[in-house]
Design a binder for these strands. Sequence first.
DNA 1: CAAAGTGCTATACTTCGTCAAGTGCTAGAG
DNA 2: CTCTAGCACTTGACGAAGTATAGCACTTTG
Lengths: 114, 114
Amino acid sequence: MDAAEYCPVHDAIQLLQGKWTLHIVRSLLSGPMGFNELGRAVGGCNPATLKARLDYLEQLGLVTRTVHSFMPPRTSYELAPSGVDLQRVIDAIDGWAREHLPETPALDESAAAS
Amino acid sequence: MDAAEYCPVHDAIQLLQGKWTLHIVRSLLSGPMGFNELGRAVGGCNPATLKARLDYLEQLGLVTRTVHSFMPPRTSYELAPSGVDLQRVIDAIDGWAREHLPETPALDESAAAS
DNA sequence: CAAAGTGCTATACTTCGTCAAGTGCTAGAG
DNA sequence: CTCTAGCACTTGACGAAGTATAGCACTTTG
């Protein structure tokens, strides 16, 4: 029944397992970005999903959306403090990846390597 | 620009963003488990998805599948060393969650006014 | 014996993410 | 001035990913 007593990790995992969530956070760690710019930085996320993730992350208070002008459209997405703290997680993943994923091209596309 | 350049983090994120992957690893950190046992520990993952994730993780060398007997079926899944190292990641997530997700019993669209 | 549990597969179904295109607008090139 | 390119999205069809449920071959437990 329980199998997993309630703990915040569960929620966090639930949060982070979204398709592009981690990629978005990671890209955003480099600094604020516009919508399309972020989309390109993330590397091939379509606007629909990107918007969905962004909305979710904003609602959770991890990112901040700032509209500079409605017309011409100018918006920037930025990590809120709680979002910046995800750096630790990204960092841990990074460390793990560097240790255990030397070169695993067995994932999918990304032919732009090297 | 970035994100196009090959980096292990990208792959790692790709790996970990699967629906139940992190949950599985987390459950497996407590020790080896059987298939159904693991399924229950993870908390509501159907066998098809579970098998898919397990196969993927095994193929990547993160978990080890040991068949003790064919009939009656007795199998145990265990984290390989590289899988155990994911403890760090889970840990980071845990730390973050405890700091920034104090108590969110239902994380759907509840506007946390904070 | 019947019920429950083991690991796992098969089928049908739903939800999520994706692709391609389009919207309203404006800044810069020609 | 016109024409293209870019911005931040939105929409709607489509396919993949994940889900529910049932079942197999077999043992253990009641």
